[in-house]
Write a protein that binds this DNA or RNA. Structure first.
Length: 423
RNA sequence: GCGGUCGUAGCUCAGCUGGUAGAGCACAGGUUUGUGGCACCUGGUGUCGCGGGUUCAAUCCCCGUCGAUCGCCCCA
């Protein structure tokens, strides 16, 4: 009979103790920083009716990347590919009783059926931060951007490690539809080509545009849009979002965030539900120049649940790309195991005595691992050493009789005679 | 989804154009019974990813498949 494989399912990870310690260290920074902004944590089931993704999540995710099935009650359900629709559902459910603005965060695992690669797996954990129902959308956007920056700063990152690029959904649409007068069905293809502009040769770029039926004049206008950046917006103040971006940049400068955040006309974001601000955070490291995370404003999602509408802005940050970022820049190292004491057992007759001692030490908050079999002292020192435990309590008949323990610090070899309550 | 590379002991790997496999580390026990890290001795190891094919004979060659990884597509 063939044995079962010990490998986890394709595109997923097992979290062994050292992995969990690293993950918990990563998450604990998230909890700390986000709570400093007054956010409350929420969670929800991993399965949702598939309907909540059909309307607003992007076509590709729903069509090809969603894990879905029909349950025994003939309901079409999906494993969540993202958290935002779920949070919107929860907000809609408590719409009236929750004071606005609502600041909620969560760290759910989300699933997408895609080809695993660097920075992308089928299951990952994603910090989601959202602000709902702010009277001033601009202030909410500012606060959320500030939070995004502070999160990475919480790991010790600075402006040399990452950059935030922002734009507004209306601007690109206005340029493609209004200025270039391109039919809407061409927009996605053109946006995709724009995204490649920095990666391919100029000739290849113009050729790709020409293939989509973009004329030389249109292409030149697109170049002005992409090159002139803020100057272009000043000249085209009638564009939806142009004034917004200009004001945002001024406010961000006043907050001292200008070295972290820039306007980038090419920021698109795939989700269909974005209605205003869109932004993306990039790693600046030449070997890891990828998008770390992103988000934006989605004002119509809560309304999809039939209650009143509520404006919203949020982002999602995945643990896989974050870990790559932190390791690339050496911002977070492996976390060592932490147990304070090892209680060596020399004689089986002292076993309950040792367990009692362990219990009293634990009651005082110490982390204690007790030997579960009597053995030679040397072996037990080795065992403590391998387990990364710094001190060993030696408990033999002498100590049991006198009530005084010998405590050895392994690194120095130093030994002390201590009463139990002095350990 | 498409292409490149890879898959040998628990881990890192070696295996010279095919003759049924090795090293280091790790692990367990011991070097005589209350003091470790060094050293020495001993010991398990492997369906050579999986399934076919060619051959007298396959870890090695061919095909398929699963997985990892890199690039592309897609996407964030």
């Amino acid at each position: 009979m063939a044995f079962l494989s010990t490998q986890p399912y394709k595109g997923t990870r097992d979290f062994f103790p050292e992995d969990m310690r690293f993950r918990e260290a990563m998450f604990s920074v998230m909890h700390d920083v986000v709570r400093r902004y007054g956010f409350d944590e929420v969670d929800a089931p991993i399965i949702e009716p598939i309907d909540i993704y059909l309307a607003k999540t992007s076509e590709e995710i729903v069509g090809q990347q969603i894990y879905s099935f029909t349950d025994r009650g003939d309901r079409k359900v999906a494993i969540r590919p993202e958290m935002t629709p779920t949070v919107a559902r929860m907000v809609a459910a408590r719409f009236h009783e929750t004071p606005k603005p609502i600041r909620w965060y969560s760290i759910p695992n989300v699933w997408r059926y895609e080809q695993p690669g660097k920075g992308r797996l089928r299951e990952h954990w994603q910090l989601n931060c959202d602000i709902f129902g702010a009277a001033s959308e601009k202030l909410a956007d500012l606060e959320l951007l500030n939070l995004a920056v502070d999160l990475l700063r919480g790991y010790g990152a600075n402006e040399t490690h990452f950059k935030v690029y922002l734009s507004h959904r209306g601007i690109l649409n206005g340029v493609l539809g209004g200025e270039l007068k391109l039919p809407a069905e061409k927009w996605p293809a053109v946006a995709r080509i724009m995204d490649k502009r920095a990666k391919v040769k100029p000739e290849a770029y113009t050729e790709m545009l020409a293939n989509e039926g973009v004329s030389a004049a249109q292409s030149a206008e697109l170049d002005r849009f992409l090159n002139d950046k803020l100057e272009y917006l000043k000249a085209k103040s009638h564009l939806e979002g142009a004034a917004y971006v200009l004001e945002m940049m001024t406010s961000l400068a006043e907050l001292g965030l200008e070295k972290f955040i820039e306007y980038d006309p090419a920021v698109v974001r795939g989700f269909d539900y974005y209605t205003g601000l869109v932004f993306e955070v990039f790693d600046t490291h030449p070997e890891n120049r990828r998008s770390l995370f992103g988000g934006g404003r989605y004002n119509n999602l809560v309304g999809a649940f039939g209650k009143e509408t509520l404006n919203a802005v949020g982002f999602g940050m995945g643990d896989v790309t974050l870990e790559d970022f932190l390791r690339t820049h050496k911002l977070l190292a492996d976390v060592p195991r932490r147990v304070d004491l090892y209680i060596a057992l020399l004689d089986d007759t002292l076993a309950t005595h040792a367990l009692r001692l362990a219990a009293s030490l634990r009651a005082r908050g110490l982390r204690v691992e007790s030997a579960l079999a009597a053995g030679k002292l040397g072996k037990q020192f080795q065992e403590a050493e391998k387990k990364g435990i710094p001190r060993v309590v030696i408990l033999g008949s002498d100590e049991a009789a006198s009530g005084i323990c010998t405590v050895k610090t392994l690194a120095s070899g130093e030994q002390k005679k201590l009463k139990a309550e002095e350990i």
